[in-house]
Design a protein around this nucleic acid. Structure first.
Lengths: 226, 226
DNA sequence: CTATAAATATGACATTTATCACGTTTTAAT
DNA sequence: ATTAAAACGTGATAAATGTCATATTTATAG
């Protein structure tokens, strides 16, 4: 039986501030789910009433626009919490969470989290810091969106994916996003994204083999991104 | 002597969760400043070690880009707190805060805030919710930046300024931003901003009298913004 | 395995937006 | 009041990016 104690999510999030007793409470209240690639964990407008721990897989938080495009706000990977913001604000989800690769998640009810928040200062401080971290990142993204060209943002995003998810044995990026998803991350049209990837390929900065992307010249990509 | 109790900032922020005793502590530890239009409260990279209460005036949080443009991330007005994020994250300021109109602010040292955070659950929850609110707003801005045209964003921003700051007796917008600042808010070139304002004027949606902007057709602006 | 749909790719073109150049108006300092 | 600087405004043009059409490749269901 999994007691949450050794879980990667516990090791990497505000949950690390919980004591033994609290972890046991946590283990008893959680529910585990499996989510297949493409399926939603929750959708914009859903009242989630708790948070999701990502034990395995990759998810995306996105918002559908009027013109049918899906803007990706954030990717989440194993070891992260999901849905904290709307739980704290007491609001329906502002974004849709979907699996980009098969996921395993645990659901922790709101009452549990609020309990920890009220009785464990270290926990509340950590949680707060996480949200602040997200805010900082979001603000910086916002600035990048305005101040950088699509080409710069693509380079930046490729480097981010490399840093954040790492590479396979063949050095290709571990996360497999469709071109459409990648376009959704950098905020551009799918065709523009494909075209620029193709340019980067021709320039020898990356190598495209089917859906796999290999970053060949990190230095040059960094130079473009700045 | 101002005891903070009746201060607008206290009424509108997490500080409302403080009890009498705490407010007295607050009043004794705060320092009051006046900041002239154009002057900085803090700059990117500064270690602020506390938060600023905006008692009066208008401020902007912005970041300078490589090409010298100033992207405005957020405007703050009387009754808001400033610099919470970096204080909580224990990081230097990520943005520069400057006065757009003459300001009066109080500085509250970090130790004080952390004290309240640790001993007053209602306070910490409120503070958390504020940061969450900022995060939601930032994410939505981010999406708007990508999914909307400059024209849409200008209409949206004018409506926002109208809602957020209200109007003078002559119905013109109460905040006076330069065209450059307005451009910085919507993330475009100053010239593009001026051109579009001029278009809106010709179409009868707004009326420009010197620096004053009057929104004549809110409905039409809303339609453009969506 | 085959049929069908989805994803990728590329060209042609339209649109949006930025940039540069310049003149005018307003603001602020002396 | 005068002058310098800053803000505003507009045209011409270039650059970036989006859109549409269509072909090809790849993935997926049955």
């Amino acid at each position: 039986m999994n007691k949450c104690d050794q879980c990667i999510v516990r090791q990497l999030t505000s949950l690390q501030a919980l004591n033994k007793e609290e972890v046991i409470k946590l283990a008893n209240s959680k529910t585990t789910y499996k989510i297949k690639k493409g399926e939603a964990i929750f959708e914009e407008g859903d009242v989630t009433n708790g948070v999701f721990c990502v034990k395995d897989g990759v998810g995306k938080l996105s918002k559908l626009s009027a013109n049918g495009k899906d803007q990706i706000v954030k990717l989440v990977k194993s070891g992260e919490l999901l849905g904290q913001r709307s739980m704290i604000s007491n609001e329906p989800a502002n974004l849709t969470a979907k699996a980009v690769a098969d996921m395993e998640v645990c659901f922790i009810p709101k009452s549990e989290i609020i309990g920890f928040f009220n009785t464990n200062n270290q926990f509340s401080m950590k949680l707060m810091q996480t949200v602040c971290e997200d805010l900082k990142e979001s603000e910086n993204d916002k600035i990048a969106l305005v101040q950088k060209t699509v080409k710069q943002r693509l380079a930046e995003t490729l480097l981010y994916l490399h840093d954040f998810f790492g590479e396979n044995e063949d050095k290709t990026l571990k996360v497999q996003l469709t071109r459409e998803e990648l376009a959704g991350m950098i905020g551009t049209a799918t065709e523009s994204c494909i075209r620029l990837l193709s340019d980067f390929n021709k320039l020898g900065l990356i190598e495209l083999t089917g859906k796999k992307i290999l970053l060949k010249d990190l230095k040059a990509l960094k130079k473009i991104a700045d």
